[in-house]
Structure formats: C-alpha cells, structure tokens
Simulated scan of single mutants.
Amino acid sequence: MQELLKIIAQGLVEKPEEVSVTLDEPKEDGSVVYHLHVAEEDMGRVIGKQGRIAKAIRVVMRAAATRSSEKVVVEID
C-alpha cells in the first residue's frame, strides 16, 4: 500500500525524489494513516483544483485497501 501511494504521487510531481510516505501505527478501529510528503512547490499538483486529485488518490487507496481488508486514511503533508 505504501509503495502504491508513492508511485501515484511520483507520477504527479516535478521532483519525484522528494516524495516520501510514512505510516502511523494502526488505530483501535484498525485503520492505518499514511502521510504523503512532497516538495513544497509540488503540493498544488498533488492536491489539485478544489482538492480533486487528493480525493482521487484517497479513492484509489481505499479501493486497494478493500481488496486486502484494510482501512486506510491518506493525509497530505
């Protein structure tokens, strides 16, 4: 899951070498929080107009998590 998020983000940004993904320990409800870190100047590319790209990334991650019976939350930092 972590690699999937990283690959998606690297395809969107100008500086793919600065993309990193960290994750928190699973919460009591079983959900895992993934933190996506990109360069400051690439933040707009990952969020998109009115957050459309960010929403799409979250939808793809939730769909992939469903296949492996996980709950995921994506935060863009």
Rank of each mutant, 00 (worst) to 15 (best):
M1V: 06
M1L: 10
Q2I: 01
L4G: 01
K6Y: 07
K6D: 02
I7N: 09
I7W: 10
I8V: 14
I8F: 15
I8H: 11
I8T: 07
I8D: 06
A9V: 03
A9F: 08
A9H: 09
A9I: 06
A9L: 08
Q10N: 12
Q10V: 08
Q10S: 08
G11A: 03
G11I: 04
G11R: 02
V13D: 07
V13N: 06
E14Y: 07
K15L: 10
K15T: 11
K15P: 00
E18W: 08
E18K: 15
V19C: 03
V19G: 03
S20L: 07
S20V: 02
V21W: 13
V21H: 11
T22R: 09
T22G: 05
T22I: 04
L23W: 05
D24P: 00
D24I: 00
D24T: 00
D24W: 03
E25R: 06
P26V: 01
K27G: 11
K27E: 15
E28T: 15
E28C: 04
E28V: 12
D29S: 12
D29L: 09
G30T: 10
G30E: 10
S31V: 03
S31Q: 12
V32F: 02
V32E: 05
V32I: 15
V32K: 05
V32Q: 07
V33L: 08
Y34L: 13
Y34S: 03
H35G: 03
H35R: 10
H35S: 08
L36R: 05
H37T: 13
H37L: 06
V38Y: 01
V38G: 01
V38T: 02
A39V: 09
E40H: 13
E40S: 11
E41L: 09
E41C: 05
D42Q: 05
D42T: 04
D42V: 05
M43Q: 14
G44K: 14
G44S: 11
G44C: 09
G44H: 11
R45Y: 09
V46F: 09
V46A: 05
V46W: 10
I47E: 09
K49A: 12
K49R: 15
K49G: 12
Q50K: 15
G51L: 11
G51S: 07
G51C: 07
G51T: 07
I53S: 03
I53A: 04
A54H: 10
A54T: 06
K55Y: 14
K55G: 14
K55N: 15
A56N: 10
I57G: 02
V59I: 14
V59E: 02
V60T: 12
V60P: 05
V60L: 15
V60D: 02
M61P: 04
A63C: 10
A63L: 15
A64L: 01
A65D: 03
T66I: 08
T66M: 10
T66C: 04
R67V: 04
R67S: 04
R67M: 04
S68L: 12
S68P: 00
S68Q: 11
S68D: 14
S69Q: 10
E70T: 00
E70R: 04
K71Y: 07
V72Q: 00
V72W: 01
V73T: 04
V73Q: 03
V74D: 00
D77G: 10
D77N: 13
